[in-house]
Design a protein around this nucleic acid. Sequence first.
DNA 1: TCATGTGAAGACATTCACAGCA
DNA 2: TGCTGTGAATGTCTTCACATGA
Lengths: 214, 214
Amino acid sequence: MSLISEKTIERLILYRGLLLQANHESESGIYSHQLGRMAGFTPAQVRRDLMQVGYTGSPARGYDIAKLIQSISALVDPAEKREIALAGIGSIGRAILAYFQGRSSLLEITAAFDTDPEKTDRVIHGCRCYPVDRLSEIILARGIRTGILCVPSGAAQSVTDAFVAGGVRGILNYAPTRLIVPPDVYVENRDMIMAVEKVVYFSGPRTGQRKETG
Amino acid sequence: MSLISEKTIERLILYRGLLLQANHESESGIYSHQLGRMAGFTPAQVRRDLMQVGYTGSPARGYDIAKLIQSISALVDPAEKREIALAGIGSIGRAILAYFQGRSSLLEITAAFDTDPEKTDRVIHGCRCYPVDRLSEIILARGIRTGILCVPSGAAQSVTDAFVAGGVRGILNYAPTRLIVPPDVYVENRDMIMAVEKVVYFSGPRTGQRKETG
DNA sequence: TCATGTGAAGACATTCACAGCA
DNA sequence: TGCTGTGAATGTCTTCACATGA
């Protein structure tokens, strides 16, 4: 019970997002089947997940929405504000910077890095940009533990090494490469090309299944 | 055996990408443990996955790289060229358009949609842009089966409905919302905020586990 | 010897189904 | 009644371990 699985963490974060998003003026409580419908899971799944956060609802009123949000946050949010570093100020990097601006009070991308001198030593979407040479130095000095990687695949591993050298413990990887990291560094891969190819496969004829092995 | 799981498809696409990427001048064959190391999986996992594509290697020389790529492609690629539609020409949408340009010969984003008249009726990163009002009509006329959704969460469901009305069978969803679709439409969620929150959690102290339920 | 292909075991995740409570 | 919390059952995915073949 002590260790919560990756999938459960993902769903908990989703539940919280849905609860924050929805306007619950009228109701202050929510049942597992309601939350399940919102998220696309079975009520049993929702109850299992919520068990793990340790907050317990009541059969009469379900889960108190405010308290549930609070409990999930206590579990998944860091204790204090967390700075995040981003490497690769191309179109994706820039999009993430723009998208992330002011979304969260606890998380902030406070340093961006690129090789191109045109892009460094200035502020983009409110984020200071530096040359990659200084990556390890700067994130180490600031105690940054989380990195977002949006560099081309050729540079991905070397920038990863710089992240790791700078003390990063988790990397969100948008490059279409598999990164080599020490076993205690967490990597989440979000290759967009692969995502498109996967969706194309599953939008194929007849629930996406053909079988014409050659 | 006939139906291949989502996870397996993902890994197969990954294998293919890695094989295409790597320069195999010297070697024409590859062993499951080599491919496994590249992809970050066990050799057994790799063999199980490759079993499903129906291409069988030899204990002496492993898997022939060219033939393996071909076999995976035969399984996951569509029979002919596939057009893809994209909705929401914000920073993410634009980034995807830019990133996707000329990556694949089989897949092409050929229509983009937005509400903003400033963005429509022109060409962005080689892709023709139209007003969202015409979404269903245009994708229906062109037989587009796959959509990429990058609109703000408020518009996500209505654009999804337009996609579905236009005959789309698979949606890649970058909006931080859960879409409601008929059961035969496939949705792949890629919420970036959630991805960051998840990675932050797993970059927390001590393999990311705290437990301070409130 | 060393790798493949695969039945069987094991680990993990989801769902069932029901006791207990308001 | 209609919910929650949870043991037990089921289902899915991964790994083991070995027969087989070059």
